[in-house]
C-alpha cells in the first residue's frame, strides 16, 4: 500500500475538486429532485387524467431503466441532438448545455423525482381523509390544506423512506465519472492513470464514501427526530407507517 501521492498538492487538488463537485451534485439533485417529487405526486393524484397518465409513464420509465443508461441518454443522446440545433452554440445557455454537470444534475433530479414521487404519492394517500376535511372546515383554502396540512402529514409518514432515497442518491454520484464529470471517482481514476496504482486511490475514496454515508445517515436521523410532529424520543412517527414495503433500487 503506497499512499505517498496523498502529499502531492497536484493530486490533492483533484480530490478536493472531486469532493466539492460531489457535494454540489448531491445538494442540487436532492433539492431539485424532492421539489419535482412533490409535483409528480400531486400530478398523479389530482392532475387531469392525461397528465396523471403521462407522469405515471415517466415514473415507470425512470424506475425501470438503469441510471447509467439514463445518464448516457441525456449526455450523449440528447446532448448531441442539441448540438445540431442551428444557432444554439451562440446562445447564452450553450455553456450550460455543454457542461456534464448539467446533465448529471438533470438525470439525478429526474430520477429522485420519480422514486421519491412514488413514495410521496403513497404517503399522501395514507393521510386520513378526515384531516383534510377538518382543514377545509376550518376555512383553509385547498392550497393551504395541501401546503400546511396534507403535504407535511404525508412527509411525516414517509420521512424514513425519503431519507433512504437521499443515501441512495449519494451512492449513485460516482456514475457521473462515466460522462467525464470530475467527481471523487473520476479524481481517483485520474490519479490511478498517473501513478499506476490500481487499488490505493479507489480504497481512499471508498473510505471517503463510507464516511460520507455515515455522516449523512446521522444528519438525516437528526432531521427525522426534529421534524415537527415526530416524537423525539422514539425517533419514529407516532402514527403507524402504512407504506408499502420497499427497499429499492440503486443504480
Amino acid at each position: 500500500m503506497d499512499f505517498s501521492w496523498l502529499g502531492d498538492p497536484f493530486y490533492q487538488e483533484y480530490l478536493i475538486e472531486g469532493f466539492i463537485n460531489t457535494l454540489w451534485l448531491i445538494a442540487v439533485s436532492a433539492i431539485g429532485g424532492l421539489a419535482l417529487a412533490v409535483l409528480v405526486a400531486i400530478a398523479r393524484l389530482k392532475g387531469p387524467r392525461p397528465l396523471a397518465l403521462a407522469v405515471q409513464g415517466f415514473t415507470i420509465v425512470m424506475r425501470g431503466t438503469p441510471l447509467l443508461v439514463q445518464l448516457f441518454f441525456f449526455y450523449y443522446g440528447v446532448g448531441r441532438l442539441l448540438e445540431g440545433i442551428p444557432g444554439i452554440q451562440d446562445s447564452v445557455i450553450w455553456p450550460l448545455l455543454r457542461d456534464p454537470f448539467f446533465y448529471g444534475a438533470l438525470t439525478f433530479i429526474l430520477s429522485v423525482g420519480a422514486y421519491s414521487g412514488e413514495v410521496l404519492r403513497g404517503a399522501l394517500l395514507s393521510v386520513p381523509q378526515g384531516e383534510r376535511e377538518a382543514g377545509r372546515a376550518f376555512g383553509l383554502t385547498p392550497l393551504q390544506v395541501f401546503t400546511r396540512l396534507w403535504l407535511p402529514r404525508a412527509i411525516q409518514l414517509c420521512l424514513p423512506t425519503l431519507t433512504g432515497e437521499m443515501i441512495l442518491l449519494l451512492k449513485s454520484v460516482p456514475l457521473v465519472s462515466t460522462i467525464a464529470l470530475m467527481d471523487l471517482l473520476q479524481a481517483a481514476n485520474l490519479i490511478r492513470d498517473e501513478t499506476f496504482l490500481v487499488y490505493e486511490p479507489l480504497l481512499l475514496i471508498g473510505g471517503i464514501y463510507l464516511a460520507m454515508t455515515l455522516v449523512l445517515t446521522l444528519v438525516l436521523r437528526q432531521v427525522e427526530r426534529h421534524f415537527p410532529g415526530m416524537q423525539p424520543e422514539r425517533g419514529r412517527g407516532w402514527l403507524p407507517r402504512r407504506l408499502p414495503h420497499r427497499q429499492r433500487e440503486a443504480s
Binding site: K171, V173, S177, V198, G206, Y209, L210
Partner: peptide, 18 residues
Amino acid sequence: TAVRAVPELLLIILLYYA
C-alpha cells in the same frame, strides 16, 4: 453494512480488479 455503505460502481471496479 460496509458493502451497503459504499457505492456499487466503486465496489464493482475495486472487486473487478482484485
